[in-house]
Write a protein that binds this DNA or RNA. Sequence first.
RNA 1: GGCGCUAUCGUCUAGGGGUUAGGACGUGAGAUUCUCAAUCUUAAAACCCGGGUUCGAUUCCCGGUAGCGCUACCA
Length: 484
Amino acid sequence: MPETISTKPRVRFAPSPTGYLHVGSARTFIFNWLYARHNGGTMVFRLDDTDTERNTDASVQSIIEGLHWLGLDWDENYKQSERLDLHRKSAWAIFDKGLAYRDFTPAHTGDDNQSGAQGAWLFNPGMRELSREESDRRAAAGEPFALRYRVPRGTGRIVSFVDAVYGAQSKAADEIEDFALLRSDGNPTYHLASCYDDADLKITQIIRGQDHLTNTFKHVLIFEGLGATAPQFAHLPLLVAPDGAKLSKRKHGPVVSVTTYRDAGFLPQAFINFLCLLGWSPKNDQDFLKLDEIRSLFTLENVNRANAVVNFSEEAPFDPKAIWLNAEHLRALPVEQFATEIEPFFAKAGFNASKEKIAAVAPLIQERVELLGQAPAAADFFFLPELAPYDVNEMVPKKGDLAMVKTVLAKAREALAEATFEHDALEASLRAAADALGLKAGQMFQPIRVAVCGRKNAPPLFSTLAVLGKEVSLARIAKAEALV
RNA sequence: GGCGCUAUCGUCUAGGGGUUAGGACGUGAGAUUCUCAAUCUUAAAACCCGGGUUCGAUUCCCGGUAGCGCUACCA
């Protein structure tokens, strides 16, 4: 064993499996990962499943699945529920030092929600001062109790720590309540389990949501009781909804779940890029960033302190900037990869699309979709055996009429019958046809485009025709002629 | 209520004692193209309020206000 103590950071992501993977959790994971990988450190995944009432296996699966989708790895795996004995022992060790006491007061119902009544609750009268003998006697008699930390009172003690994001923090111990370490069922609370594990797993930096900033004073006390050096803390500003409230499924729906982004066709790298820009800045005016760039640029010093709004609404469920970033990442993909990325979305949309056909279509739509999920709709006419009914007037070009449409279509069919279905040849043929008719290119192309695509807005005509092939193109033009 | 944190365009942000307060998304206008998209140009758009410090505050300090968080035998 090497004797040198590693100075490499060890960070952890410690979700509670009480729901699907939330975008805020995903961001916390990403920031931890970036910190670890930027500094050559270790990433620990720890399931904080001490709340047996609310934990579900489905949630564990959903979290792991979401993390895998992000494509970011971790090095070590732990489950708090497998370490309960360690937690209990550590609580009693704190008790033995006189830093904790038994509280026999029946559990608070929690429903009354009266924390805002008058003044802060600090401890239950009579319990703190119980003699060791009486405490032991009542416990031995089977009376249930919670184990509480004996927070220093009247000593003028100021609890403090330095947060890597928020700076120096301090709070009078007299303001901190005697929080629980062990519940009356003997199970550890989150605070105890989390701190014990962070100490035991030699976590060097705790990077987590700002909602834990004030809890950290308690944690500092626990590390002290444990006889451990507290790690460095870094709290991240929260992700909030446009109404300023913390994102929640109840209130904001599926937009808070990372699977929603995945299913809509976000690329994980774009999603990561977007999340990183909320509460962190590369400070170089860059917005579009590859994962490698983010990793090399990432520092805790560049993390902001103000909450960031994820700008979504019912009409537009995704933040416009997230969509734009996704479009950018989509365009940056090699076309072959773009093709493989859209494939599952065609299957999901019910198109019987071969790999070859998708590969041919991919370059035509890559620049035209912002989400992978938009691909099938953008390319439907390549796969539909029969075009959906469209308005014939759509074919009428600028300064034209239906008579012009008819002649254009007839001429196009004639020209195309002779043409080789390849981009340049099609262009030459159709432009010549337009000349022959004395029409502008646009006037010639629009009727054809609508005839073969069923709509005005579509990819460039010659490439489209080339992919469609002679047979289909001619058939659709003939059909359009019949409509006029 | 108590304690803690925060405050620059609609949103994400840069900046910082003296600046035309910068960028990005989105929005408007224009250019270009066979339509759309992309691209380019361009416009509108911000320092929460009040004091103090200072020759000078958007920047530093204090107060207010607002928002958020914690205030459980949830995490």
